[in-house]
């Protein structure tokens, strides 16, 4: 995958290729191997020559905030192409609340196979019920909410694992 960032007022082009727990990165054409695994709560564990280090990453709009040993680094996503790409993936397998509301009914169970367009959940917002449907075909992996729960905009609702055919 190709990513573009703006860090310290400079544009950086990065190629990211996963390889198990290792990553093959090409930063501005230079090969950079990285051994990194995600930990909970936005944290990443990275093996460096100084030993294992723990960093935290957060998303704020088109900024990526990274905490490393007390210092905070900010990366910007300047590229509109990238934004398009991100836009597409938002319609991807995982469902998040588009607006605050109340979960009226979860209509799927963990492990259940769903077809694209199948209703997974009914959300009540501003006194209107909305049926939320699966964006792609897949299997229900995690349900983050239960009937009657109040959710905020952006809250995760249901995670799907896409059918193998659809996996990148």
């Amino acid at each position: 995958m190709h990513l573009n960032f703006r860090a310290d007022d400079e544009d950086v082009a990065i190629e990211v290729q996963p390889d198990g727990c290792d990553w093959r990165l090409k930063i501005d054409g230079q090969e950079v191997p990285l051994e990194a695994v995600p930990d909970r709560n936005g944290a990443w564990l990275v093996e460096t020559h100084q030993g294992r280090r723990r960093l935290w990453v957060a998303v704020r709009g088109d900024e990526r905030l990274i905490f490393c040993d007390g210092k905070v680094h900010t990366l910007l996503l300047p590229d509109p192409e990238h934004a398009d790409e991100a836009e597409q993936t938002q319609g991807g397998p995982n469902m998040v609340a588009d607006m605050p509301g109340k979960v009226v009914q979860v209509q799927v169970a963990v492990g259940q196979a769903v077809a694209a367009g199948e209703v997974m959940l009914i959300l009540e917002s501003m006194k209107m019920e909305t049926e939320l449907v699966a964006a792609v075909a897949g299997t229900v992996e995690t349900i983050h909410v239960q009937d009657g729960q109040i959710v905020s905009q952006g809250d995760a609702l249901v995670d799907l694992s896409e059918s193998p055919a659809a996996t990148a």
Binding site: A7, V16, P38, T48, V57, I66, K71, T89
Partner: peptide, 17 residues
């Protein structure tokens, strides 16, 4: 630590997408 942060930022972004 800018290089490390950049690399981890890129990997995290990949995973997120």
């Amino acid at each position: 630590d800018a290089d490390l942060a950049l690399a981890v930022g890129a990997v995290a972004e990949y995973a997120r997408l």
